[in-house]
Design a protein around this nucleic acid. Structure first.
Length: 266
DNA sequence: AACTTGCACAACCGCGAGTGA
DNA sequence: CTCACTCGCGGTTGTGCAAGT
């Protein structure tokens, strides 16, 4: 998964970052900020190029970087954003607090691309559940406006982020080495520019945030999937029950599981 | 058990934009 | 205006791991 550490022709180290290097970078940024990436490694005592330091900081060491699996809402939002924005990962990342462009890009290539392909091959279907919600809830099709849905998804994700409503979580993967530094850092001292990071970091345990899946749905929107929506899809053979004997009425659509009550699972 | 294949993800590379001299 | 420098972005690669054969 990680690259074997090597050195380039200038003697600069490449490959996987060690905990010691991480700590050096964290300590340096905590004390001096990161206004000049090119000079940073020299002053921080790192045998890395500035570019590598910047990447490491932005993607992994920065406070508030969210690790772990993508939620359904995040997946949906990425799919929608990618459809409208294309491969503008950094722009997409601004809609997902705590997620980096690199992480979203990786997730796209490894998991979401196929779903997107399925969507493109049959654009009338959308991603299933959201279209169903819209079409049932609003016969005028106003709610089918992608921007409206996008706003709602973004809103729910933002609302569910403790970042915006209280103390920030510290990524458990780095908290062991960064809590001390992080707890005294804020965006000004770090020169961090994105909004998610522009809030003061407080080193408190937020295990629930990292382990709990998003529980909110789209403001109850999934409840709107009904027979009116599902039946035509069943008739067309696009949507099909998960199992003929499954009395829970689960349906499958391009890898998306739709439970007719109020749950949607990938 | 050995080998192959695919996935996930950390990291690198090249390019373009912005900025200051 | 041009050049050099820096930064940020998107594309791509490399590698460990798990699942499948």
């Amino acid at each position: 998964m990680v690259r074997t550490p090597t050195c380039d022709k200038n003697g600069l180290k490449k490959g996987t970052w060690t905990p010691e290097e991480d700590q050096k970078l964290i300590d340096y940024v905590a004390n001096y900020g990161c206004s000049n990436w090119r000079q940073l490694p020299k002053h921080a005592g790192l045998s890395r190029c500035g570019k590598s330091c910047r990447l490491r900081w932005i993607n992994y060491l920065r406070p508030n970087v969210k690790r772990g699996n993508f939620s359904q809402e995040e997946d949906t939002l990425i799919l929608e954003l990618h459809q409208s924005l294309g491969n503008r990962w950094s722009t997409i990342a601004t809609h997902l607090p705590g997620r980096t462009d690199n992480e979203i890009k990786n997730h796209w290539h490894s998991s979401l691309k196929n779903r997107s392909t399925a969507f493109i091959s049959n654009p009338t279907m959308g991603y299933g559940f959201r279209r169903g919600r819209s079409c049932k809830e609003d016969k005028t099709n106003e709610a089918c406006d992608i921007d409206s849905v996008l706003d709602l998804a973004t809103h729910n994700i933002l609302e569910s982020m403790p970042i915006l409503n209280g103390p920030l979580p510290i990524s458990t993967s780095i908290s062991s080495v960064s809590n001390t530094a992080s707890s005294s850092m804020n965006s000004k001292s770090l020169g961090v520019e994105d909004d998610a990071c522009s809030r003061q970091v407080v080193g408190v345990s937020m295990d629930d945030f990292w382990t709990e899946p998003f529980l909110q749905d789209f403001d109850g929107s999934i409840n709107c999937i009904s027979d009116d929506f599902l039946k035509p899809l069943l008739d067309l053979g696009i949507l099909f029950p998960q199992s003929p004997i499954d009395d829970q009425e689960n349906f499958w659509l391009y890898g998306l599981e739709i439970e007719q009550t109020n749950e949607v699972q990938w």
